[in-house]
Simulated scan of single mutants.
Amino acid sequence: MIKVMIAPSRYVQGPGALKELGKHCALLGKKGLVTGGTRGISSTKDVIEQSMAQSGVEVIFEKFNGECSKKEITRLKELAEGEGADFIVGVGGGKALDTAKAVAYYMKKPVVIIPTIAATDAPCSALSVIYTEDGVFEEYLVLPTNPDLVLVDTAIIAEAPVRLLVSGMGDALATWFEADACAKAFAGNIPGGNSTAAALALAKLCYDILLEYGLQAKLAVENGVATPAVEKIVEANTLLSGLGFESSGLAAAHAVHNGLTVLESTHHAYHGEKVAFGTLVQLVLEERSTEEINEVVNFCIDVGLPVTLEQIGVLEIKKEEIRKVAEAATAPGETIHNEPFPVDADKVYAAILTADAIGRLALKTKGV
């Protein structure tokens, strides 16, 4: 049994961390191409320029066109090569960051990741999700290494809509339970090995931090400030969840998320919101205790994560539609098969309806 753990080469986090970007990038080269969306660039450009100049690093900005497509990756790669860039910097949300990672990969250059939201655990990963120019999923680009630098300025994160931070908590919520399932099943992780004790410990720490500081962090961001609780939750959403899912593996929660995407009514819900409901489904599948399930349900309700199908857009439960979700979640190759027992569509169908019923009862009990 070979164990493998992967991680970014350097992770930097804190309020005002962007001011230190230059000194970290100076270790990677003398010239960088920065790409990102309108909001990402507008909220960071002045600080990036100043910080890079102080460290003697030249920087070029190029707007990301909005889709992580092969055409956009090629366009930015050719531009960066023409400018003689030594490294690539991605600023913003998931698609901009994935594009920067892909450009750097094809150029065989270092990549710097600067997330402006904490909505997923993608910033630290060795993965880019490639779409067509029309936004249809095309393929996963599995990268040989994680980013060379991930820099998270929590003052910027705190200015983003609170729903994005809460969605990140939903994505992170699954980390420990999926890691635990994979460990029990001796299932492989993302780099193709088994989990280390360190990765499992980080996944559990991720869950513990969410329970302890999640609500505090939400309240702080609702008021546009970065407190110690926000620092902890951003680290959980970004670093701990990222390390946990890659180096320990995925299981039912993310497979249920993938299944839910077959319903158009769920498309408005964020990734982490659907993963949170998928986590409840996983807990039902695994015959977890009422105490464990209630702990997760109460956390979700407190921070504003969905616990029912209705909350993710399924306003009318049609059994044939739930059956389609269950079948998609259990398709060959899906991560639900990393559970330490056989899983089929019948079991998932029952677990989805039961999780929904548990969530509805909890909301009624709490008067929500």
Rank of each mutant, 00 (worst) to 15 (best):
K3Y: 06
A7W: 13
A7T: 10
S9E: 15
Y11A: 02
G14F: 13
P15N: 14
A17V: 09
K19I: 01
E20W: 10
A26F: 12
G29I: 08
K31R: 14
K31P: 03
G32I: 11
T35Q: 08
G37W: 03
T38I: 13
R39S: 13
V47T: 13
V57Y: 05
V57H: 09
V57A: 14
V59R: 08
F61T: 10
F64S: 06
N65F: 14
E67M: 12
C68P: 13
C68T: 11
K70I: 10
K71Y: 13
R75D: 11
L76H: 08
K77M: 10
A85E: 07
I88C: 08
I88W: 05
V89Y: 09
G90V: 04
G90T: 10
V91C: 09
G92Q: 12
G93V: 03
G94D: 06
A96N: 05
A100W: 07
A100P: 11
K101H: 09
A102I: 03
A102L: 09
A104D: 03
Y105E: 08
Y106F: 14
V112P: 07
I114A: 01
T116L: 05
A118Y: 11
A126Y: 04
V129F: 04
F137V: 01
L143C: 05
N146T: 11
P147H: 13
P147S: 05
L151A: 07
L151C: 02
V152G: 01
T154P: 00
I156A: 02
E159Y: 03
V162D: 02
G168A: 04
D171R: 11
A172D: 13
W176C: 07
F177R: 03
E178D: 11
A181K: 05
A187M: 08
I190Y: 03
G192R: 02
S195T: 12
A198S: 10
L205F: 07
D208G: 02
L210K: 04
Y213H: 14
L215M: 12
A217S: 15
L219K: 15
V221L: 06
E222I: 00
E222H: 07
G224V: 01
A226K: 05
T227L: 07
V230F: 12
I233R: 12
E235N: 04
L239R: 06
L239E: 08
L240F: 13
S247P: 13
S248H: 07
A253R: 11
L263W: 00
S265Y: 05
H268I: 07
K274E: 09
K274P: 14
V275W: 02
V275L: 05
G278W: 13
L285G: 02
L285I: 11
E292F: 10
N298G: 05
C300K: 09
V307A: 09
T308G: 01
G313Q: 06
G313V: 01
G313I: 01
L315G: 14
K318P: 01
E321P: 00
R323T: 12
R323L: 15
V325D: 02
A326C: 04
E327W: 00
E327K: 12
A331Q: 11
P332G: 03
P332H: 06
E334S: 13
E334T: 08
T335Y: 05
N338W: 13
P340I: 12
D344F: 01
D344K: 02
A345L: 05
K347G: 10
V348D: 09
I352D: 01
I358M: 13
L361D: 14
T365D: 10
K366E: 06
K366P: 02
G367Q: 14
G367E: 08
V368L: 15
